[in-house]
Design a protein around this nucleic acid. Structure first.
Lengths: 202, 202
DNA sequence: GGGAATATTCCC
DNA sequence: GGGAATATTCCC
């Protein structure tokens, strides 16, 4: 089984933006390339995987060996297609027809810090039955959905406003209570010392 | 790495209802129990996992050994918590406080055919796969609809309550204003006629 | 126990 | 290449 220290620091990344970490897939793929680069330099074996010449992408030279030997070291599988699926999820592009060469603007040799800027392509969950064609989706159901969302949105806004108004009213009441106390104090002093007219009320 | 023949027949299950198969998690967990039962019968070692006495549930007697040894044989991990997470996803219930014993109505010794009736709990409002029949679709739609109605209902109730509270607060403020006015009146009278102590304030 | 992000698989 | 189901992880 692949060792899995992933996300050991990602909790930090989730709560703050400045310390965010790349996802396990990106870190591991980068690690894999760095470590294999080491291997490639230390012997003259045929390369399995490497950065490309410009360092702005990488090439899987031997998909079979890559899948059987390297993938299980870093991931929980040995399927080339699963690896490719992940690359696609993160927006990598296959840039050659005869080689398994992939590029991503933020995936470059020597630039590990860029990894944190790579994001998964978000696929928002479809609310619509698959048997409906796109035009129907965009008219009927989308409209209905929008209407519901709008209603909820309006209710939530009204809710927020009401809470704010409530808070302001409570603040006013607090002020009135303070004022009342002071007035009563003054009154009692006034009654006790009726001649002390120089005393300032507030 | 765990061998993974999962879903080798599930494609059939996706396209028709009559030949549907249980998910890999359920099949594997069932396999695991059957195979371990064999083990338990063939030697006198301490049990790691087994069906319970009634055969209507199972017990993990040794979570550590179970996680380290058995889980990786069937799944892509060795974490007991991930296994538990899956059990919860499928609606299994922990039925003992001192043992790791789990029940599910459709998970019984000798009843592999029942597995196909177990479904994952997560009822996503997102998809209505084509293999669902109309009644199931409408059930899902209704559920989703109900969920939305409930949300709106709750928001509307909260709004009503907030409005009521606001009204009460405004009433309080009105009272405070009257009170303030009266107090100020009294004070001014008091200052003007300091000896008139018999005058009632209110 | 379960929500949600990420990973892996399956299918088109 | 990507949609979607299931699996695994992380977090509350």
């Amino acid at each position: 089984m692949a060792t899995d220290n992933r996300n050991i620091h990602r909790k930090i990344g989730r709560s703050t933006t400045r310390t965010k970490c790349p996802t396990p897939f990106l870190s591991k793929t980068y690690d894999l390339l760095e470590e294999q680069e080491e291997e490639n330099n230390n012997n003259n074996n045929i390369k399995v995987v490497s950065w490309n010449g410009e360092g702005n992408g990488f090439v899987v030279w031997c998909p079979d060996e890559f899948s059987e030997v390297m993938l299980p070291k870093y991931f929980k599988h040995n399927n080339f297609s699963s690896f490719i699926r992940q690359l696609n999820t993160y927006g990598f592009k296959k840039v050659a027809s005869k080689r398994w060469e992939f590029h991503h603007e933020k995936f470059q040799k020597g630039c590990r810090h860029l990894l944190a800027e790579i994001t998964r392509k978000k696929c928002e969950p479809s609310v619509f039955p698959t048997y409906l064609n796109p035009s129907k989706k965009s008219t009927l159901l989308l409209a209905r959905n929008n209407q519901e969302n709008t209603t909820r949105q309006l209710l939530m806004e009204e809710n927020q406003n009401l809470k704010k108004e409530k808070m302001e009213l409570q603040l006013q009441i607090a002020h009135f209570k303070t004022l009342e106390m002071k007035l009563l104090q003054c009154l009692s002093q006034c009654v006790e010392n009726p001649h002390n007219k120089t005393r300032r009320l507030f």
